[in-house]
Amino acid sequence: MNGVLWVLQIGLMLIFVMDGVLKAFQYEIAKENIPWVRDVPKSLVIFVGYVEIVAGLGLIIPIVYEHFRILTPISSFIFVVLMFFATIFHYNRKEYIDIPFNITLLLMALFVMIGSMFF
């Protein structure tokens, strides 16, 4: 079970850190490639990018520092909340194509959160 959790944690970290770097540090590129970025304030996009980077790193820090195991469920919870609101956001914008991906990431983060607390 731990192997599955680590694979999911690393996968989520890669997805969210890469996406977060794009939003936080390459705003103009994000604005060109992600439709919703044009319609929300720049500060919100950058904030979401930083949250994705920090929480993504929180998923893998326990690999190196066993003392920080509490970061995994906290980071996973942040992603669950983020993906929940992203799903609602895309639904309200009628961007139905994005919703299955958001729900998949939400379920992966939920699995990691529960699994890291009990295994």
Rank of each mutant, 00 (worst) to 15 (best):
M1T: 07
G3T: 09
G3D: 03
G3M: 01
L8S: 10
L8N: 00
Q9A: 14
I10E: 06
I10Y: 05
I10K: 01
I10D: 13
G11F: 15
G11E: 14
G11Q: 05
G11H: 11
G11C: 12
L12D: 11
M13H: 05
I15D: 15
F16P: 04
V17D: 15
G20N: 09
V21H: 12
V21W: 13
L22Y: 03
L22S: 10
K23H: 08
K23I: 00
A24T: 12
A24E: 03
A24D: 05
F25H: 06
F25G: 14
Q26C: 11
Q26R: 15
E28S: 12
I29F: 10
I29R: 15
I29S: 13
A30P: 11
A30G: 13
K31L: 10
N33L: 12
P35C: 12
P35I: 05
P35T: 08
W36P: 01
D39R: 15
D39G: 15
V40R: 11
S43Y: 07
L44N: 07
I46G: 07
F47T: 11
F47M: 13
G49H: 09
Y50F: 15
E52D: 15
E52C: 02
E52M: 05
I53T: 13
A55G: 12
G56H: 00
L57G: 14
L57N: 07
L57A: 13
G58F: 11
I60G: 04
I60N: 01
I60A: 07
I61V: 11
P62C: 01
P62G: 06
I63C: 03
Y65F: 07
E66D: 09
H67A: 14
H67P: 08
F68E: 12
R69K: 14
R69T: 14
L71G: 09
L71Y: 10
T72V: 15
T72M: 12
P73R: 14
P73S: 10
S75R: 01
S75C: 05
S76L: 04
S76K: 14
F77V: 02
F79D: 03
F79W: 01
L82T: 02
L82G: 00
M83R: 02
F84L: 10
F84Q: 05
F84W: 06
F84Y: 13
F84G: 05
F85V: 09
F85L: 13
A86Q: 06
A86M: 09
A86I: 02
I88Y: 07
H90W: 10
Y91E: 04
Y91R: 03
N92Q: 10
N92R: 15
R93P: 04
K94R: 10
Y96L: 07
I97R: 10
I97L: 14
D98G: 09
D98R: 04
I99M: 13
P100R: 13
P100E: 02
P100F: 00
F101H: 11
N102Y: 00
N102L: 06
L105M: 05
L105D: 04
L105K: 00
L105F: 03
L106D: 00
M108L: 01
A109H: 01
L110T: 02
F111G: 06
F111Q: 04
F111V: 03
F111K: 03
V112L: 07
V112P: 07
M113I: 04
M113K: 13
M113R: 09
I114H: 03
I114P: 05
G115Y: 02
S116R: 08
S116H: 09
M117A: 11
M117L: 13
M117K: 10
F118R: 08
F118C: 03
F119P: 04
F119S: 10
